[in-house]
Design a protein around this nucleic acid. Structure first.
Lengths: 340, 340
DNA sequence: TTGTAAGCGTTATCAT
DNA sequence: ATGATAACGCTTACAA
């Protein structure tokens, strides 16, 4: 059925070795043979068996991503953009992206073992890092090439790309406080997540810097989805003294918040200011448009992709830790003109 | 460095064969040896070399997706949801999802050749089908296992899962016409795409059924993104007689349309009705919420996943062609209450 | 119950 | 310029 080197060899009356070398343009094969081999290969519809090549070469030319059970879904636009950047970048180096889902809730440690030790992957992308991330501990311990999209709180040395969430959130609070808001609420994801941790840090520092007290009851934890934001906002708005501004851990949550605010008959930007994080495309076309913190998702994906390829090749990275500066994008949901 | 069967064999003083059989629970190996082997394997941190297993077994346990150059981006929520369904489903069968990007604009025919003939993939998912799709022709011709998410216009027999776009769009027009709209515009993607073709068919039939003339200048082609929708709406609204309703090929486009409408100082649902297609999560939290055609994305993904595994195993499908009934979801963007 | 040997398709080494 | 041989790590007849 499938055409192998052996088939071609038989056809052209040469050895398998010669055929292999001819196809790879080795210069110790006569031009006639080379031509003959190449033509025959084409005619017979030959394509190399990548699996065999890999067994021989001991490389997989593949970057892996293991989706944690409680991680971002493939349908999260920000994550999708990062991933698109990664895929694009590694594709240009001939690498593929292998996505598997962690079956166990143990963050897929088993999956890592199986895929990486099993030589199926040359390097691994770790996403949605946690404050003390078992996956990273495991990968470091097994000495496996990986790059993380996010940091950890432990003092470990490993390559990552992250946005400065603390600084971003600090700028958010600053902006909202300058608009005159005093009761600023925050809908977060699990504080186990590193980026949430840093956002909280930035939030608290921002509040302190604006001489505002941080009311812990104004900080609610929710699923990092629109539904989570909707529910979180409902809780906050039902307080006897509801907040006048609601800040969210990401844009999806913020969109849910806007929806809840509007369903209460309130106007976003006038009655309640809303701020997100990520700057997904939706943030610019929602109504009102969403004030948020911009993350260069695709670009970060590309950087991640380059790093993943470098570590896959065993190179040492010239710049293993990349911390991207976020930027505040002020739009209608904080109703700038109305509050000044 | 890496632990192989040979290493274990040496350690326990048995042959590689015995070790292999012990690990696979063959019953012709003594329980003592089995225990010994398994314990040693665990201690040594053994994980099978999947590449070698595959070369031997001649299977890849991998489903492939080759992203066409002009296809949906990973950041498209609807597509992400479908893909999540696929990934989830095939993961439970121990399959992985391999994503590569077509480098050539030739729809990735080369990529198909390389990956499938190269035995790297057991089956392939084809997305965003075109009216006469070269990829499908190629796959059929090479007799390769695949499942398409979408149909073609040629009379070919192959497995697919699709939504009845014609029926969905027909229902949209029906709904909008019943609200009293006469000038109904349509922002589409390229008519080369099968789903756009069927949407156009449904649109025209719906218009005819409502005794409305189809004005071709009211049908504009755009990128299937929010930006595309924004631009398309701008064009339509600048007509001397602008439409009172704008229907879009998907929700992303519709969200862009809403944004453009609102930027013109018009109110969506009152001045201009807007309808999308897909029912992405955003459609429910946008402001106003978006009337759209629901597609059971995750479910379709799961069905696709099951079919992909079946064809990968060479099984014949009991139900190779699945056409899902869409359902109209009426929300605020067609301002039902206002028009009645 | 265990071991030997062949083979999956490819590439690298060493002869010729 | 070409070929024989071994090796990558694993599975599976077949033998013992």
């Amino acid at each position: 059925m499938t055409v192998t080197l052996k088939d071609i060899a038989r056809q052209v009356n040469r050895s398998v070795t010669t055929v292999s070398r001819a196809l790879h343009d080795y210069d110790d094969v006569s031009s006639e043979t080379r031509e003959l081999v190449k033509r025959t290969a084409l005619e017979m519809g030959y394509a190399p068996n990548v699996v065999a090549q890999r067994l021989q070469k001991q490389r997989a030319d593949t970057v892996g991503l293991i989706l944690p059970v409680f991680g971002p879904r493939l349908s999260d636009p920000h994550f999708g953009d990062v991933l698109a950047g990664v895929a694009e970048e590694i594709a240009s180096a001939g690498f593929d992206l292998l996505i598997s889902m962690a079956d166990s809730p143990s963050d897929g440690l088993d999956a890592y073992r199986q895929k990486i030790v099993g030589r199926r992957l040359d390097s691994v992308l770790v996403i949605r890092t946690q404050r003390h991330d078992q996956r990273i501990r495991f990968l470091l311990h097994r000495n496996m090439p990986f790059v993380a999209n996010g940091r950890v709180l432990d003092d470990w040395d490993f390559p990552y790309v992250d946005v400065d969430h603390a600084k971003g959130m600090w700028a958010v609070v600053q902006h909202v406080a300058e608009l005159g808001h005093q009761r600023i609420a925050f809908i977060t994801g699990s504080p186990q997540l590193t980026f949430v941790h840093y956002q909280l840090e930035g939030f608290r520092q921002g509040m302190a810097n604006a001489s505002l007290p941080t009311d812990e009851s104004q900080i609610v934890e929710a699923d990092l989805t629109q539904r989570g934001g909707y529910k979180g906002a409902q809780i906050l708005l039902s307080h006897t003294i509801p907040p006048t501004a609601i800040v969210a851990s990401n844009d999806l949550v913020a969109l849910g918040v806007m929806s809840a605010v509007q369903d209460q008959g309130l106007e976003v930007g006038r009655d309640v200011a809303v701020v997100g994080f990520d700057d997904i495309p939706m943030a610019d076309t929602s109504h009102p448009t969403l004030t948020t913190v911009h993350q260069p998702a695709a670009h970060m994906g590309q950087v991640l992709g380059q790093m993943l390829i470098s570590v896959a090749w065993g190179k040492t990275l010239t710049r293993p830790q990349v911390l991207v500066e976020p930027s505040l994008v002020i739009r209608q949901s904080t109703g700038l003109d109305l509050w000044l």
